[in-house]
């Protein structure tokens, strides 16, 4: 029974490591986001193969059934990964906001400089119905 769970744990860790390696190789996953994944996969792999270490770790954590310790450690890494993603997401949200703000300010400057010649390239779609009257106004002005 315990042998079987060990085999599954080793296979599972290997598969995760292989998938991550393949994703990086295909440039679908950036290295900086994969480090934590790799660390998790390798630590789980070591603990799955090296029974003695797992049993010592389990004893240290106060877990009676050693393979359960694997689940606890895996869950810990899952939380760590989730936190890591939220950090990345927060940074992206902030950068996205700054880009939107700068873009809109620059668009206004371009609009101001080109409006007389080419109409209004950035007017939102909802306001398009008035483009004709606006162009007419521009000609008058």
């Amino acid at each position: 029974m315990q042998m079987r769970i060990q085999i599954f744990a080793v296979l599972g860790s290997l598969i995760v490591a292989a998938i991550i390696f393949e994703l990086i190789r295909k440039r679908k996953l950036q290295e900086k986001y994969s480090l934590l994944w790799f660390t998790a996969a390798i630590i789980l792999l070591i603990l799955s193969v090296w029974r003695e270490l797992l049993e010592k770790t389990a004893a240290f954590l106060g877990v009676y059934y050693a393979p359960s310790a694997l689940f606890i450690i895996a869950a810990f890494f899952g939380m760590l990964l989730a936190l890591h993603f939220t950090l990345v997401l927060s940074k992206l949200t902030e950068q996205n906001k700054i880009l939107a703000q700068e873009l809109s300010i620059l668009q206004e400057e371009i609009r101001k400089n080109t409006q007389a010649r080419r109409g209004d390239p950035f007017e939102p779609v909802a306001a398009m119905e008035s483009v004709e009257s606006k162009n007419a106004n521009d000609r008058v002005a």
């Binding site: 939107a100 703000q101 873009l103 206004e108 007017e123 909802a126 306001a127 119905e129 008035s130």
Partner: peptide, 24 residues
Amino acid sequence: GSTDATARVAREAGAVVINLPFNL
């Protein structure tokens, strides 16, 4: 990121209008 004619109305009333590309 208005979906109505806020930008046009504001510009016609004489304001400078900054159009954010989506709702912030």
